[in-house]
Design a binder for these strands. Structure first.
Lengths: 338, 338
DNA sequence: CCTGGCACTCTGTCCGTCCGAGTGCCAGCA
DNA sequence: TGCTGGCACTCGGACGGACAGAGTGCCAGG
């Protein structure tokens, strides 16, 4: 077990390294933090911390930098979440309050998060399956072509084109629309499959094919992989990453283009509370030198989606976590109001 | 006026520089291209080209690199558009044919373009105002809340929430829906304002306020700045930009995040035919060291939107132009089919 | 008008030196 | 036992001179 002072030394190393981006030595440490001991003592502590794998030297006779394991300990034990200041809170609220629809909310959230953390922001749209059905609409665009529109209580709207096996009259369409809504409106999307299972049975034989087609399109829309959407922003902040650009930045940009990767990343994060994945803790190789801070957000107590930021492992964890948490909270409020 | 050979020298310089990314000297030129003259002669030609401002030296006793003006001449007079090979065409078609809806078409187009050109791709959604109305739908979500859904012939769907000044009955809503569609369905969005001008007059006094509100939301949706959407991709290709990263790449990433900037950029491009904007020809400062190749695409003869790529001024113009043109053509076909 | 030759200039690189920061270890002290 | 000051050592980064290579401009001759 590490002594209290050694933990303080680790904390000081992390703080200084995050600030300066340069390996930190024993002398500089004692100068900037009043640890009450001499550099020599700190050196001994550093050696111990290095033995335990919390810090490392880039090369002999250089200062130390934290390892992923060191950051992990820092985040878990040594650092709190830095709360936003009152003006910051007001700014967040004002900025988000101006949004006119869900797309706008998400877009503003991404911008805000990127700006506050000076990192890359990722915001997932409210998941369909965790939302409630507000309305299902069917529009006849052509005799055998129907547009299916799903509207959630969070304001999300998804549409899908359906090519029907047979022409489908306006009357039948109205009938289907009414029956469908009476069954699912106000219910959770996750329950929809069960709720509409036997719906085709109530229709004339000639319409059943079309009804089934519409329903299967509806169910497809709810399949996990299809329904998730997200928005990213603040990629310009990647330029603040480090000195050895091309190699560091490229895989990150590639990861960001692969929505699947990002969704997995957010998905892996715990469902409640904030999750911090540091360096190699991220399964995706390209993100091995980044950390991901994410948290669920939702209108009520329950999370409907996640948002977070991607930044260098060398990031200001308390500040970033504070910003992420605050933004998630306000987004939840906005969604609840709409 | 420049002699034929001098133009050939310029062409050779551009080609070599694009290939090697290094200033090209007279000796290397004569070795790689059989110009039929000696290096000394080429040197004289180069001096002339430099006097005219087509090429420049980074420093004395270094090779030459093309200036923006040089690239301009190259694109205008010296280079054709390199057509895609048959296998490439097939690949494009196959890839785009798999799309299931407009979002998918746009997403695939972005990916494709980024991959083919190895640059950043930008694709604008079909402009509303240049499209035709397929259907306008009104949904009652709450007594005084209506959702307006616009559907274009290109498959684009836009929705807007409308808060009504007074409760609006289902019957009135159906009435408005019917009258609205009978006026605008099949007409161009650009004509919609004129076509619905006097629509409120046909309604009861108590409904007129709501009808006006709905209509004004509809018109707002059509305002240039609101209605344009675009998608970008291939930002990972920015890492191939040059050696002096952070400075070059940052403003480009910033520009890409500002949709307004990009829309302006595409908007400035000529309406028909392909447009190439080289370096300082781009009004936006951050893009002064990039070139933008863009072209309109559309289902018929007329362009409904634009797509293009953003890359370093040192790019393979013929190849890029070929890819952009080919992709635009196939996207047009896909849209026409849907 | 082209060409070969020549002197010149500049950059990038290699190499040796030097300085400073940082380390590990050790003996001494509380 | 644990902290401290001192000391020798190591290593990377900066500085500077030498050098090679690529490229140029110019000029005289064909």
């Amino acid at each position: 077990m590490l002594s209290e002072r050694r933990l303080q030394v680790l904390r000081a190393i992390v703080q200084d390294y995050v600030g300066t981006e340069e390996p930190v030595g024993s002398k500089a440490l004692t100068e900037r933090h009043n640890l009450g001991v001499s550099p020599a003592t700190v050196r001994n502590d550093m050696a111990a911390l290095e033995d335990e794998g919390f810090i490392a030297q880039p090369h002999t006779s250089a200062g130390r930098i934290p390892t992923d394991k060191g950051y992990r300990l820092f985040v878990d034990k040594l650092a709190g979440v830095k709360p936003m200041t009152a003006p910051e809170r007001r700014a967040i609220q004002n900025f988000l309050d101006g949004a006119v629809d869900l797309d706008d909310v998400v877009a503003r959230t991404v911008r805000l998060l990127a700006q506050l953390t000076r990192q890359v922001a990722v915001v997932q749209y409210p998941s369909l399956t965790r939302s409630t059905v507000r309305h299902v609409e069917l529009l006849s665009l052509a005799p055998a072509r129907v547009m299916l529109v799903l509207i959630t209580d969070t304001g999300r709207v998804e549409q899908r084109m359906v090519d029907c096996p047979a022409p489908f009259g306006e009357a039948s369409l109205a009938d289907l629309r009414a029956r469908l809504n009476s069954r699912v409106a106000g219910r959770r999307f996750a329950d929809v499959p069960r709720l509409v299972e036997d719906l085709p049975e109530g229709f004339d034989v000639e319409d059943r094919g079309t009804v089934s087609t519409v329903l299967s399109t509806l169910l497809e829309t709810l399949v996990e992989e299809n329904e998730e959407r997200l928005m990213i922003g603040g990629t310009a902040n990647l330029t603040r990453f480090g000195h050895d650009f091309p190699l560091t930045i490229r895989p990150v940009l590639e990861a960001l283009e692969e929505q699947v990767v990002l969704l997995k990343l957010l998905g892996e994060a715990g469902d409640s509370g904030m999750t911090v994945r540091i360096g190699h803790e991220n399964a995706y190789e390209g993100l091995n030198s980044t950390s991901v801070v994410s948290v669920g957000y939702g209108s009520g107590g329950e999370a409907v989606a996640k948002l977070g930021v991607v930044g260098p492992t060398r990031m200001d964890y308390p500040g970033t976590m504070g910003a992420v948490r605050a933004v998630a909270r306000y987004v939840g409020q906005i969604l609840a109001e709409s």
